[in-house]
Computed example of a mutant assay.
Amino acid sequence: MHYVNAKGILSNKNGMNLYRGCTHGCIYCDSRSNVYNMDHAFEDIEIKANATELLKKALKNKKEKVMIGTGSMTDPYIPLEKKIQSVRESLELINKYGHGFTCITKSNLVLRDLDLLKEINEKAKVVIQMTLTTYDEDLCKILEPNVCTTKERVKVLKILNKHDIPTVVWLCPILPFINDTEENINGILDYCIDSNVKGIICFGMGMTLREGNREYFYSKLDKQFPGLKEKYIKTYGNNYGIASPNQKELMKIFYKRTNENKIMNNPDEIFEYLHEFPSKDKTKQTTLF
């Protein structure tokens, strides 16, 4: 790990990244892509030393209450968070100044902050977004080796539901020829239904690959799925968006089951919900981060 002093902490859409880089080891991670211009090793976590100071100033000066989001680039609950506690400190400030919070994670470490999440949700709004990709536990350990498995994440969803904290699931990525099966999609949807999730974000059954993450992904395929790299190259070349050959059938299952169980499945609708800060008069008020 290493420290930097940042010039700012919140984007103009109220998103923040407290860390840069990750140690979860997910073989498909898009954040490894060269387009993000990371000038240090991906596992050498960059920590914003002045994050708390910057966030305090930003939240204090906000004229309107907003939803603060994190996790789009780096999972905020990487193991290092246990020691650094940047997320915990941020939640304390968000709670103090009356804003809302949402994050994307794969980690059960989020439960460490359940006390603060409950307080914020009672006064404003909290939505925890959890990524689920793989129903099979053994396969999950291969694809996402250094973070809790899908079963553990589902336990988190159920605990949050018990405490009336809304949840959204990211059903992605779905890797062609690996987890793009009816069994996998139905298994994940069973988990979501059982956990009473509010919405499931799915942009199609597939994944993205570009320079940087493609090379890392292919190196892992060579190790874990010998011969599959060649199939990817033959089928997709250097395409950025890679759709599963089973996409049509899998999306039918996705829409049928989410509609039957009244789970939001339109990404635009879900994003609107995530960004909406509840006003006192219950009128619709949206602030994008």
Results as ranks from 00 to 15, higher is better:
A243D: 13
M251N: 09
D222T: 12
I185Q: 05
K231R: 10
T181P: 04
E211Y: 11
N186I: 05
Y236E: 09
K223H: 05
T235C: 11
D190A: 02
N246G: 04
D222Y: 07
Y255V: 03
G212H: 05
E272M: 12
I242G: 06
M264W: 06
E260M: 09
N213H: 09
K234C: 12
E183K: 15
I253E: 10
I270Y: 11
F217P: 02
S244E: 00
E183D: 12
G199D: 10
S219T: 10
F271D: 07
N259T: 12
E249N: 12
Y216V: 01
M264D: 13
E183W: 04
N213F: 02
I200K: 08
M251E: 14
H275E: 12
Y191T: 09
D222P: 14
Q247P: 00
S219C: 01
Y216D: 11
F271W: 13
F225W: 02
L250A: 06
E272G: 08
S244K: 03
T258G: 04
K252S: 13
K252V: 07
E215T: 05
N239P: 10
I193V: 12
C202M: 12
E211D: 14
D190C: 01
G187P: 01
T181H: 03
M205V: 07
L189S: 03
Y273T: 15
Y216I: 00
G241H: 13
